[in-house]
Nucleic acid binder design. Structure first.
Lengths: 132, 132
DNA sequence: GATAGGGGTTCCAGTGACTGGAAGGTCAAG
DNA sequence: CTTGACCTTCCAGTCACTGGAACCCCTATC
């Protein structure tokens, strides 16, 4: 199938698929006219990549997951390790964002938000103490 | 003061300060030798930028906040609008990450993580239904 | 005066993961 | 034969820096 079909079936933009070929994540065959010719397996791999990326795995992690996916003798523990590490990063990111949210919420709540110029948000950003 | 002093006082790397000058966020004076010469006001602005960035505001938002900060007649409502919009993005990002966390946690929990090759994580990524 | 070191300066390239656009080749329909 | 949709490659841009090269400046010491 052509790249637009591969795009439809995987949900990835054609540009992204070409990029994935560039960096060696997929290696579709080529027709006589130079067009990429994706097999079902290729399409399946692209969908796998799309799902992995949408779960927030980096390209390099996707590369690892792909090779584990293609390795019929891999141990599930190897996969679990990649995923667990990623889970930890997600948890940490959530905690960071929640801290930001709390600080910013405090500032926003304090700001009366009217026509007057004094503003606790700018005061907070300019260095005054921000109590939680 | 020189750039290294400005770096110390603001907590920003010298490279970042130069970059901020490049994009017009600060405009330090120059000495006869061509060295940047930061005033107290410049240093204060840099600290303001550092705090704004660490709260996750984009550079363009920082530019807006800076101009509001320097405008003595601005309305606090203008500032509050920028901050509130940012708060909303933070909340959305947190929600997205929590959804990822939940999906991935389900997969990881199901994976026995031993030497056997069958792995619910890869199955999930390869397209099988992932019940929450 | 030479030298060593620790500043400073500019400019160019790279990061991650694409995305947009230009210039041109290919294909099927009318 | 032309139109328009599709494909190709390659170059540049995104965001917010960061690293490095090549070079200038300042102070201290020998």
């Amino acid at each position: 199938m052509n790249i637009s079909d591969a795009s439809r079936s995987s949900g990835l933009p054609a540009k992204t698929i070409r990029y994935y070929e560039d960096i060696g994540l997929v290696r579709p065959a080529r027709g006589e006219n130079g067009y990429r010719d994706f097999s079902e397996t290729d399409a399946h791999k692209l969908a796998f990549l799309g799902r992995s990326r949408s779960l927030g795995f980096s390209i390099e992690e996707c590369r690892t997951l792909m090779s584990l996916y293609e390795d019929r003798s891999r141990a599930s523990a190897d996969v679990k390790a990649v995923a667990a590490e990623h889970l930890e990063r997600i948890a940490q990111k959530i905690a960071e964002l929640q801290a930001l949210q709390s600080t910013l919420q405090t500032l926003v709540t304090r700001c009366h938000g009217d026509d007057r110029p004094d503003c606790p948000i700018l005061d907070g950003l300019s260095g005054e103490e921000v109590a939680q």
